[in-house]
């Protein structure tokens, strides 16, 4: 108890120190007992700068290939014939196919280059809205049945939309006010909570052990983990969503995963996206 309080006070102190140097100090921390996304983000960036002195933070959008030289070469060769290309083409076709009412996705998303707007906290709905949800909202508005969140169709659509959104800079609005801060804190908590029989938090592998190897596999940094989805993975032999990757990372430590687009995973995506603010979108991507 006492220890937690002291640590908490320490964190607060750390937080306020970095706030002083941050250009956009806000009243956030006053209203919400110590939840300080700006300070968290700065602290995480500082951590990775120290951990990977030779890797510009921006470069973490390429995951382990940011620092694993051997794997990077193979990956660059692979990118000469991008394995996600078919998914992008299929997605373009789906995107242009009209609904039964004669309208279509372009009526909701224009040219489709909207990935940079998601995820965001929607004050009206009081929850985090992701691109996948927005796609199903668009369908519902036009009388279409929702797509399965773990299905092939939605992942092809997001592959196309990610492709045309390349280069947009992640710019999640600073979580302020009760709802956004609670969602942010829930995502941060999920990332830092040990789960599964093997007792790992996301941060155990992607912060604490970032850059190290598990068996032959290097571990990527959390920064940049959201920039490039969906991903074509050779293990999956297909493109898959960020939430499918969350599922796998939960499962591999023996935890029962959560459903795609569950509140847990959306809050997690929101938190990670805020951490990655300033990085460029570069999806879809390929990974082992």
């Amino acid at each position: 108890m006492v220890r937690t309080t002291i640590l908490g006070a320490g964190l607060l102190l750390l937080g306020s120190v970095s706030l002083v140097s941050a250009p956009l100090a806000s009243e956030t921390s006053d209203t919400n007992s110590g939840i300080d996304p700006q300070a968290d983000r700065q602290a995480l960036r500082d951590f990775y700068t120290q951990r990977f002195p030779d890797v510009p933070l921006e470069e973490h959008k390429n995951g382990v290939y940011a620092f694993d030289e051997g794997a990077r070469e193979q990956w660059l060769e692979m990118e000469d014939f991008p394995p996600y290309e078919i998914a992008v083409d299929d997605g373009a076709e789906l995107y242009e196919t009209p609904f039964a009412d004669g309208k279509g996705y372009p009526d909701c998303f224009g040219d489709g280059a909207v990935k940079g707007r998601y995820p965001h906290y929607d004050e009206v709905r009081s929850e985090v809205v992701t691109l996948e949800m927005a796609i199903n909202d668009c369908r519902a508005d036009h009388g279409e049945a929702p797509l399965a969140y773990d299905g092939a169709e939605i992942t092809r659509l997001t592959a196309y939309m990610a492709y045309v959104s390349r280069g947009q800079i992640i710019d999640v609005a600073l979580p302020e006010g009760e709802g956004p801060l609670a969602a942010y804190e829930a995502g941060k908590r999920f990332y830092s909570t040990r789960r599964g029989q093997l007792n790992f938090a996301c941060s155990s592998c992607h912060v604490q052990l970032a850059g190290n190897r598990l068996r032959a596999e290097r571990l990527s940094a959390s920064l940049g983990q959201v920039t490039h989805w969906p991903v074509y993975r050779f293990k999956w032999q297909d493109v898959g969503s960020l939430h499918l990757r969350f599922n796998e990372c939960n499962s591999q430590v023996g935890a029962e995963p959560f459903p795609p687009q569950s509140e847990e995973y959306r809050n997690l995506e929101y938190f990670l996206s805020y951490m990655s603010n300033g990085l460029a979108l570069n999806g879809p991507a390929s990974r082992k």
Partner: peptide
């Protein structure tokens, strides 16, 4: 017994997670 261990994990983590991010 396993479920009890996982409930103990939930209990411990309800506060312990705060000490973990960002690991410095």
């Amino acid at each position: 017994a396993m479920a009890e261990a996982s409930l103990a994990q939930a209990e411990a983590e309800s506060t312990a997670w705060r000490d973990r991010f960002p690991f410095s």
